[in-house]
Design a protein around this nucleic acid. Structure first.
Lengths: 225, 225
DNA sequence: AGCTGTGAACATATTCACAGCC
DNA sequence: GGCTGTGAATATGTTCACAGCT
């Protein structure tokens, strides 16, 4: 299928990738049924999703693991590493600075910034905490195009303005605010309280939800979107 | 509109709540246009969403703030506090233990657990880290029905099994694994690497995404679902 | 006049069912 | 026989447009 991968599919591709990476080293091929079972979606969903890629499946056999992994990484744009900065070093910011999972996923933290003079010069992970004013030159020098925003709600919009001003065009926002950004900047919001509240809703009733946060539905068990 | 609030609406209700809480103290009424502007959705979306609640709007005027807030909290089931436990005390687990945003959102952390004997007895926030084996009795004593799972990918399924075994029926999963849980347990997954990968996809192109992670689309600017 | 509430139109996403290939 | 790829059917979600209340 040519062109325009649906949002819902894009949100599932990282999950497939995660599943593929966890596979025992034995196999070199996987069927849509097997992948669906691990990713907790329907086999037809897997096939439809993968049909949007330059497709790799072999009828009667399945999908070649290496090809599939390579293709998904390429589509997601993580066939090269992205340089990422973290803005805001509270609890969450420093936890993210130390988070091991980013490296294997295609991301490298190259700078950590805060507005608070008391924090500047301290270390989070192996990185010096720098003033926000240092962001602009670092972005130019290091080719940063992705920022993780982990300030408090208050400072978030101001920090986002600066992030946009220096030319970063994608923001992963952990602050509990809806940001105002220019047209060309992509924002994705992750809100911990929101997630719990959604779960709370489904806990009251016995409803039929699903597991993946971005999208995705769950076949057999109660996973919440 | 009676019955069955759509998943997409449920995912937006916490955002509306967040927007309402941020409003300056002056007003006592808000229109769908005003709320839509803040929440970055279309006014018709706000009206449709709110029409699933025991509706509170007044034609020609708008929605009464107190009523609306109360109704949303009630629908989400956060008109009372939920007792929450955190299982797994790595970087992320301890950041979550210290996260201020849960309290106002209707959640109270009542226990923190880890498998690693070296961590047990240490403190995270004001809480003693306890062995997982203490979970069962705490759940009974404290009426816990929600768990945040923040272990590494390895330990996650095992921890989830224990969480389910002791009777918790909702899990917010930060571990990068799709969990296997019984039918009656609701799981919501938040995966930091996945979020970045989705952003990465939209960074390559100039696409039209949206901001809320669970759902929701964005009117004017590029926010990614 | 202004804003809500909602049916109807449209758009997106999921699932089915089966033809096509290995 | 087994598994992919996909059109068609269904389900879910969004937006429009306007009637109805205040």
């Amino acid at each position: 299928m040519r062109h325009a991968i649906p949002r819902a599919t894009v949100a599932r591709l990282p999950i497939y990738l995660q599943c593929l990476n966890m596979l025992p080293p034995g196999a070199s091929v996987i069927s849509s049924d097997a992948l669906a079972e691990i990713a907790r979606v329907k086999p037809s969903q897997v096939r439809k999703d993968l049909s949007y890629l330059s497709t790799t499946g072999v009828r009667g056999v399945g999908y070649e693991l290496n090809d599939l992994t390579t293709e998904i990484r390429s589509v997601l744009g993580i066939d090269h590493e992205w340089s990422v900065v973290i803005v805001g070093v509270g609890n969450l910011g420093s936890a993210l600075a130390n988070y091991k999972g980013f490296a294997g996923a295609g991301f490298s933290i190259v700078g950590i910034y805060d507005r608070d003079p008391a924090k500047i010069g301290q270390r989070a992970n192996s990185h010096l905490i720098k003033p926000l004013s240092a962001l602009e030159s670092d972005v130019d020098d290091l080719g940063v195009s992705l920022a993780i925003l982990a300030t408090h709600a208050h400072g978030a919009q101001e920090a986002a303005d600066e992030i946009c001003r220096v030319g970063i065009r994608s923001i992963l926002n952990f602050a509990p605010t809806m940001l105002r950004v220019p047209e060309e900047v992509a924002v994705r919001k992750v809100d911990l309280a929101t997630e719990l509240q959604i779960l709370s809703f489904y806990s009251q009733k016995q409803a039929v939800p699903d597991q993946a946060s971005g999208t995705g539905h769950q076949a057999s068990a109660r996973h919440v979107s």
